[in-house]
Simulated assay, not measured.
Amino acid sequence: MSDSQTPRVALVTGGSGGIGKATCERLATAGMAVAVHYAGNRSRAEAIVSAIVESGGRAIAVGGDVADEADMVAAFDAVEAEFGGVDVVVNTAGIMLLGPLATFSLDDLDRMHRINIRGTFVVSQQAVRRVRPGGAIINFSTSVSKLQFPGYSAYAGSKGAVNAMTLIMAREMRGRDVTVNAVAPGPTATDLFLDGKNDDEVGALAKVSPLERLGTPEDIAETVAFLAGPGRWVNGQIVYVNGGAI
């Protein structure tokens, strides 16, 4: 663990998105220097960086395609050049395309798997090579693999691959003092989740949890912060964060 002279450093892919933004802000609040990754929305990432810096934190924006090895090598290089190393990598970057398996577009399947599977793999490959002892790698899965909502087969399939990678990565990191876990949110009020859903559908999904509400990005970020910081004895797990929906 780092002291005040050597603060921990986190790279959050998809940091300009809903859960990614909340995660960046929460890790900055915990005292970490944060690299806010973006794929296309540079201005939003830079706004998050500005807010963190104005609050007394340290942050930079880094861009790139998570599925492109050269882009991710450059992103990790930029973080190490700015902050001296990487302690925490959070893979929030991902897309969700929905539809029944029988009619699902194979082009959409390939697009989603490129980002959700290959992207997680490429970023994780850099992470396992670079994260310092005492660090954490946190991937993103989904609770829908257990909730089994119709229309989610392609998305859940991509996250099933993330689950498998996560569990094996944890064991491949033996002796490195680096934890590897995945966070599996349930229905969460993000633009990604709400896109294309009407009020009735959103209301029904809010009732899935016995808490009778959707999760918030901040709910998910709290779990990420625990795994990135004090949760050192949680390793090789898929952590379902869904308000008791399953």
Rank of each mutant, 00 (worst) to 15 (best):
R8M: 08
V9F: 06
L11K: 10
G18L: 14
I19Q: 08
I19L: 06
T23I: 06
T23G: 06
C24F: 12
L27I: 12
A35N: 07
H37L: 11
A39E: 12
R42Y: 07
S43K: 15
R44S: 03
S50L: 14
E54M: 10
G56Q: 08
G63Q: 14
G64C: 10
A67V: 14
F76D: 04
F76V: 14
D77N: 07
V79Y: 02
E80T: 06
G84D: 02
G85S: 15
D87C: 00
V89R: 06
V90A: 03
L98T: 08
L101Y: 11
T103E: 10
T103S: 09
S105F: 02
D108A: 15
D110S: 11
D110A: 13
R111V: 13
R111H: 10
M112R: 01
M112Q: 10
M112K: 01
F121S: 10
F121Q: 13
V123S: 05
V123E: 06
V123K: 05
Q125V: 14
P133K: 12
P133E: 15
I137A: 13
N139P: 02
S141W: 10
T142C: 01
V144A: 07
V144N: 05
S153W: 03
A154P: 00
A156I: 02
G157W: 02
S158D: 09
A161M: 03
M165Q: 00
L167R: 03
M169E: 11
M173F: 08
D177T: 10
V178T: 05
V178G: 01
T188S: 08
T190D: 12
L194M: 12
E201M: 15
E201P: 09
K207A: 12
V208P: 00
P210M: 08
E212T: 14
P217H: 15
D219P: 10
A221N: 11
E222L: 09
T223F: 08
R232A: 11
W233Y: 07
Y240R: 11
N242G: 07
I246S: 14
